[in-house]
Amino acid sequence: MSLVEVKGLTKKFGNFTALNSINMTIKEGEIYGFIGPNGAGKSTTIRILLGMLKATSGEVKIFGKDAWNDAVEIHKQIAYVPGDANLWPNLTGGEVIDIFLKMRGNGNKNKRNELIERFNLDPTKKCRAYSKGNRQKIALIAAFASEAKFYILDEPTSGLDPLMEKTFQQCVLEVKDEGKSVLLSSHILSEIEKLCEKISIIREGAIIETGTLNEMRHLTRTNLVVKSKQPLQSIENMKGIHNVVVQNGETSFQIDSEEMDAVIKYLSEYGILKLESTPPTLEDIFLRHYENSKPSVPSGGSNP
């Protein structure tokens, strides 16, 4: 069953189109990665999911209810962590966590104390005295101590140290084991790679790619490093071969997935001594999409 169902979501601010016909489906027990450059529309999408901004057109449903009209009802089952948790300077961390849990209505006190322990937070300090990472911990503790069905995490680990980031990842996996869903928006692609089954890439207000990491890899290039008995000849002229670099007798290049078979057959004729293949990282995929996003910028005077 899908937990979140977004169809044809468009949001305009005046004349500016922030989101253009977005579709998104998140299933139960799924960790859904949401990536894109700054200003692409990630936070706007999330604020619409939370019923804070009103969609100009399109359908946004969570738990089968309308995100704008039934916001309060939906939020009883949602935990949200903003990217920059701005907290009330005169309240202590502990007080803020309690208030957040009460606002949702179903917090777990033992879980709260256990998480404070795990995230190594001093809850008796006033919020104005916390560093960014510590403020982020407060939002995370309040989220994971709540018994929500759906977690919306908007760049949740910004400012956290690597140890705490690990704790965070454990928390996400625990939540997943309980069959709950997570929407994780992040710039830390290794984190998304590790946690998410399904990923959407958003650019300039439109989703340009959705799928599992494997599916995405399929659409892109694999990195190969080859060492052969005889020198490879005119390999750069083959179909589907890119960025050839020869160094220390080794040739490295990228290869389009659909040309793999033909290229390997061709290579074997040269007597392969060493063949290393690395799948593209999410970063490779992301950068490729990002680089493709520049046609509108005039380059080198070729445009009229």
């Binding site: 939370l50 939020h75 949602i78 009330w88 957040f100 949702r104």
Partner: peptide, 10 residues
């Protein structure tokens, strides 16, 4: 950005 603490909850 502090009213989002209310409106992201019930």
């Amino acid at each position: 950005n502090r009213t989002e603490h209310f409106y992201s909850r019930a």
